[in-house]
């Protein structure tokens, strides 16, 4: 009965545990920020490009984790948003509108619209049907991109210019682009983390575990999931914007169902629901892919089973493993 005054402090996670939870992401972003330094100290320059690509996919995996890990919705069409972001960027650059402050609002708007319309349909279903319908919408966008003959169709679209940011040519140097992507990743991470801890996020988490209870408590579960779906799609669109600027090329392959599958893999590999797990998973996935593809052209045959085994044995992915090593317990 005497706990009321201390409530403001006690209601959040106990202080020590909260610090441990912050340790991993701080370490992660700290290491990433130092990566260009490693290159100037002799790491091969291609390494920075690989890491940049990994961070771009980390943005997409992070956005997927919001609906998959936090919301419990297995979307198999998430690459569609990556593709839409990349195509909008590619098309606008081709049409002479390379400014990021112009492109990003369009990317966000179109992704939000696409997510709202398709999400409203997908979210009427559950389980395997949900997976299949998101997959179907993803393939729809894939075929749409193939049919865009004015912008390369099946062959894709090569870009001869990079985006500017407020008129500044930040993307033209490797290091400049690296830091822009890192800033975007950090921004998205903080944003999604705040969302997850908010009132909205709490209901989203609760609905993953027990949607019936959430609805008899007065919340429209479908509406809450739709909001998450739209936000998630928008964040993935940002990843698409950077991907187009990174590869100077966009093609329908960006949104194939295999890409959606890879995004799920990355998220699960890192550990679902923790957000930084998705980032770590994406980076680990792309580095492993790069290393194995240098070794043998049949790397997929080794890589696939390897990931499956890893996830099966660690349960909780890389983050789950770190947590276990870091002293038992915890969620």
């Amino acid at each position: 009965m005497s706990t009321a005054p201390a409530l403001a402090e006690t209601a959040a996670a106990p202080a020590p545990r909260r610090h441990i939870r912050l340790l991993l992401p701080i370490l992660l972003f700290g290491l990433l920020a130092l990566a260009p330094l490693a290159v100037s100290l002799g790491m091969p320059a291609g390494w920075l490009a690989l890491l940049t690509r990994a961070m771009i996919f980390a943005i997409a995996a992070l956005s997927l984790d919001l609906i998959l890990g936090v919301g419990g919705l297995v979307s198999f069409g998430h690459a569609a948003f990556l593709g839409i972001g990349a195509y909008v960027t590619g098309i606008m650059i081709t049409e002479g509108r390379a400014e990021a402050l112009l492109i990003l609002p369009v990317v966000l708007g179109i992704c939000a619209l696409f997510a709202a319309v398709t999400g409203a349909i997908c979210l009427r279903t559950r389980g395997v049907t949900f997976i299949m319908i998101t997959l179907a919408f993803g393939q729809m966008v894939y075929f749409l991109a193939q049919a865009l003959s004015a912008y390369g169709g099946d062959d894709g679209l090569t870009l001869y210019e990079k985006s500017t940011v407020a008129g500044l040519d930040l993307f033209s140097t490797r290091t400049g682009f690296f830091y822009c992507v890192l800033a975007a990743l950090a921004g998205c991470y903080v944003l999604v983390r705040i969302l997850v801890a908010s009132r909205f996020g709490r209901i989203l988490r609760a609905a993953r575990e027990n949607p019936v209870r959430v609805s008899v408590t007065g919340f429209d579960v479908t509406r809450i999931r739709l909001i998450a779906y739209v936000i998630s799609g928008m964040v993935a669109g940002i990843a698409g914007f950077f991907l187009a600027n990174h590869t100077d090329f966009v093609s329908p392959a960006f949104m194939s169902w295999q890409r959606s599958g890879e995004l799920i893999f990355m998220t699960v590999l890192g550990g679902v629901g923790s957000l930084h797990g998705a980032i770590i998973g994406a980076i680990a996935y792309l580095i492993a892919e790069d290393a194995l593809s240098h070794l043998t052209e049949h790397w997929r045959v080794i890589f696939g089973p390897m990931i499956v085994l890893f996830v099966l044995f660690t349960r909780g992915g890389i983050v789950g493993m770190i947590r276990k090593l870091g002293g038992g317990g915890g969620a």
Binding site: S198, F200, R202, I227
Partner: peptide, 13 residues
């Protein structure tokens, strides 16, 4: 505001 997006819920008196 049952669904506010940004304010931390755990520390909300």
């Amino acid at each position: 505001h049952p669904l506010s997006l940004f304010r931390n819920a755990a520390r909300d008196a």
